[in-house]
Design a protein around this nucleic acid. Structure first.
Lengths: 191, 191
DNA sequence: CAAATGACCGAATTATTAATATGGTCATTT
DNA sequence: AAATGACCATATTAATAATTCGGTCATTTG
């Protein structure tokens, strides 16, 4: 059985970055886990940074697959938006890479990690923005500025996933859905 | 003219903490600015930490005054909630202390600064929660859990004040108000 | 001969040691 | 009696030494 060398290296790297972060992972360690010589890494990737970007490309491809499978091209419903963001959360808990990189950003502010996290966030925001725009076009959503609505939904979701969980009992999938229905879709004002 | 010594020391300390943070401010510097000997600080405050807490007490008293003057005791309107939070933002921009402490938390994670910021946040959240509860009692707001609604409003507000401003043009007071009316009070769903 | 390897090396990072500053105390001054 | 600033143990910062790292390339391997 012949394994694709580039793929082996990327998988070893993803595993290392998930455990040790970008800064804490060494090219030598990745090479060892991938069962190649250290110099071999440089036959497939220009440098450590390019290897990291390739790993992040794969992660974003996973997110794209997730969003494509959940968000409807005729405009989102509350349920599909929720499903998409909840899927991001599940991925994050399973793979640890994003959590580890976020931690690295908080502690060291490593330039490469900052850029990677920003890239993921930008991808999610722009996907949400497009979905929201489609919802408005189909007459489902009342939107003044899709960018602001996407930002609102995303930030609120992250606040409950990250900040709320630090002090309170984590919300279940259904509870999260209800929070979004009550506060963003239906609103809290009694007319 | 006899100046209150304790008050002079607190004012000098607040100024120092605003410029240098808690960790970066020295008791010797505060004493100099307050025109007292260093040992005199310890006749009024047990230690540096107690001086810091006294300064934070004053800040929270200011916030309490602000909230009392804005939030109506017969339940909040969207407008008064917005006014209260916008007032927090104005205070924050004017006094620099909170911004400086937040920065210190991010960079050093200084224990005392972490606790101070958490205390301010808790005060704001609990004030919002009480206001929201009154709104629900008066039949103005449809609320399942006041704590979650208070958290939602606060986190969203902070996201626009802090995160949004890092990449986008800051929103005006009116624009912020519109975002809150559209997304939280009225909701975005078209029935 | 092409691809893989791991020793090599300058630069970056970490560890260790030396020097300085700090918070709190207290002997002295006012 | 209250205020001051020198003092001191500890904490922090600066300087120096040692180690590690990413990338390169001479050598080995297939």
């Amino acid at each position: 059985m012949i394994t694709n060398k580039r793929q082996s290296i990327k998988e070893a790297a993803k595993h290392a970055f998930s455990l040790f972060g970008y800064k804490g992972s060494t090219v030598a360690h990745v090479a060892k886990v991938a069962h190649v010589g250290k110099g071999t890494i440089y036959t497939e990737f220009k440098n450590k940074e390019e290897l990291f970007e390739a790993v992040m490309d794969d992660l974003l491809a996973d997110f794209k697959d997730l969003f494509d499978s959940v968000l409807q091209h005729d405009g989102p419903t509350l349920h599909t938006l929720h499903k998409a963001l909840y899927g991001v959360m599940q991925y994050r808990k399973e793979h640890k890479l994003l959590a580890q990189l976020t931690e690295e950003v908080n502690i060291y502010g490593t330039h490469e990690a900052v850029q990677a996290i920003a890239r993921v966030e930008q991808f999610i925001l722009s996907t949400l923005e497009q979905a929201v725009e489609r919802g408005a076009e189909k007459g489902r959503l009342r939107i003044a500025d899709a960018k602001i609505t996407a930002f609102t939904i995303y930030k609120l979701y992250m606040a409950f996933i990250v900040d709320w969980e630090q002090k309170e009992t984590p919300l279940t999938e259904q509870e999260l859905y209800d929070v979004f229905r009550n506060h963003i879709f239906d609103g809290i004002a009694i007319q």
